[in-house]
């Protein structure tokens, strides 16, 4: 019994790890996004939207478990 509980605990711990990683990536991308907007390099529009997309995808996958739509139960 303690084994199962321990496994559950470990999985939980690892997933929190994923959460931290995701939010760090989101923060970094936001900073980059902001820096691009300040610097105004040529072709910033597609770049900024690519970054927005890059932010949305991890939220969808890791926070919202989008895979569960096509049957991949995530939790």
């Amino acid at each position: 019994m303690s084994d199962i509980a321990a496994t559950g605990e470990m999985q939980g711990a690892r997933r929190i790890g994923i959460g931290v990683r995701v939010v760090l990536v989101l923060g970094a991308l936001t900073v980059i996004e902001y820096a691009i907007a300040i610097a105004e390099p040529p072709g910033q529009l597609p770049l900024i939207f690519a970054i927005a997309l890059a932010k949305a995808v991890p939220i969808l996958i890791y926070f919202m478990h989008v895979n569960q739509i096509w049957g991949g139960e995530h939790s």
Binding site: A37, Q44, A52, F63
Partner: peptide, 18 residues
Amino acid sequence: HFVDVAWVFFYPALYLIS
């Protein structure tokens, strides 16, 4: 999370592009 994703797109569209 969905509300957050919506803002992920609204933020650059409202503030960053110009």
